[in-house]
Write a protein that binds this DNA or RNA. Sequence first.
DNA 1: TATTGTTATACTCTATAACTATA
DNA 2: TATAGTTATAGAGTATAACAATA
Lengths: 166, 166
Amino acid sequence: MWDAMTNIVVNEELGEAGALDVSSIEHSVIFQIKRTQALLTRRFQSRFAGFDLRPGEYGILLLIATNPGRKQTEIADALGVQRANFVPLINALERRQLTERRPSLQDRRSNALYLTPIGESFVQKICQVEAAFEAECTARLGGVKAREAFLALLSRLVAGTAVTGP
Amino acid sequence: MWDAMTNIVVNEELGEAGALDVSSIEHSVIFQIKRTQALLTRRFQSRFAGFDLRPGEYGILLLIATNPGRKQTEIADALGVQRANFVPLINALERRQLTERRPSLQDRRSNALYLTPIGESFVQKICQVEAAFEAECTARLGGVKAREAFLALLSRLVAGTAVTGP
DNA sequence: TATTGTTATACTCTATAACTATA
DNA sequence: TATAGTTATAGAGTATAACAATA
């Protein structure tokens, strides 16, 4: 072990015991964002455990609720999900009778997405849980203004980065 | 269909065209962290494209470099990787002769991890790229003080959340 | 009994290519 | 020719269970 105070190698045979030196990743933006996202997603999922919902499915329901009648590709794009990967997600929601696909009259290639009545009441319930979760995040960040500043920093961090792509 | 010149909704039968209403996820901490992490990781990976390195492998090399002789489990824990999933990662690095496992003399169950000479020079090279990446992040965030404040917010967001778990 | 490394396995998320039917 | 939806597939990342060797 290298001791910065004494400039002497200690316990060199097996490396020192005690805590690791994690300074190299502790101040790294990319490492800490990844770690935070993983922990936050875990907590998010635990809140929605009773609804059998994944974060991706939640986003779909929310966007359809506020944008009924839109095409699959539009919803998928807004969520950053490729249309090929969107299919099994919307299939699962449709199988649970939360959403439905109606053939578009203008463009017979595309499906217009809607919530079913069951889906409407389901969204109302999960919106309450999500609002509580976001409120907790806002409180942890120090209030609404602090949250907006935080979101602005996130945005600046990736400004100009392509939203989709390889 | 939305006509930007006339500001008139046309073809309203199937829902309006134009941009979706994404306000519900635009101000959501969990959605924006997920999006930012995905975009930032993509940019990170493109910078390391020439090294054939994934973010996970980069973290392992960095931690071994600053903590030579530590056990696999210690390195894995610090990175939030389960020991079962750590095995193929360290195998790949060893196959490329960047790291090596030496049997521990104190505890014959465990392997002590070290960089090879090849690994040492490799780490020096990728550290330059990583420093440039972090410097760019710092600049985007508004300087060193702003970055530390940002990292503090990330930390507060998940304070008290278990690092590992189900 | 508990821990270290390992194997096997499974599930999610993501990425690409190719097909069909429309436009 | 281009686009919308779909299928198939492959690669990462992550999760659990179980085992042998060792503590």
